[in-house]
């Protein structure tokens, strides 16, 4: 029990004209920070993802030009490695928090809600870990691969 609620219990409606005072909560500001994060990450993601879609689907030959050589050509540059890494983390955090909100809204049974969130957080950890490892351990010129599948800089 906080001191505020004890005081409220002892002194019911001391001053009826006084403005309503919000009870102090002990839960911290997690939801507030989450709310702020959704907006801040949203703006950044708009730029990151629009550029991602433009470079991969509009510029050049679009989807028909995407293959191993295309990805290797991008990730040979630290610029796109960092771009995709930030995009991966922000998008996964933004999306996971969004789905968490939806689970909290619609899954009314405690057990179901808990299992859905366990599945969600597991997916988050697996996908973010996998994606991060792939970006940093990727070899654009894997030894033994057929040369015609690799970006042109591998052979020169």
């Amino acid at each position: 029990m906080t001191t505020t609620t004890q005081a409220a219990a002892r002194l019911p409606i001391e001053n009826p004209g006084q403005a309503y005072q919000r009870r102090k909560t002990t839960r911290g500001n997690f939801e507030l920070y989450g709310w702020v994060f959704m907006r801040a990450s949203g703006v950044v993601l708009l730029v990151l993802i629009f550029a991602h879609l433009f470079v991969n689907l509009v510029a050049g030959e679009g989807i028909s030009a995407i293959d191993f050589g295309f990805v290797a050509g991008k990730w040979a540059s630290p610029f796109w490695q960092v771009w995709d890494l930030v995009m991966l983390w922000l998008a996964m955090l933004h999306g996971t928090n969004g789905v968490r909100t939806i689970i909290n809204d619609y899954a009314e049974r405690d057990g179901l809600r808990m299992w859905l969130k366990i599945a969600l957080y597991t997916a988050f950890v697996v996908v973010v870990t996998l994606g991060t490892l792939v970006i940093f351990t990727f070899d654009p010129c894997p030894p033994g691969a057929a040369a015609d599948l690799l970006p042109s800089f591998c052979t020169t």
Binding site: D67, V71, W75, L130, G131, L133, V134, F138, P142, A145
Partner: peptide, 9 residues
């Protein structure tokens, strides 16, 4: 996308 880490094929 993680399949780039498996093989180009």
């Amino acid at each position: 996308t993680s399949l780039v880490r498996v093989s180009p094929e």
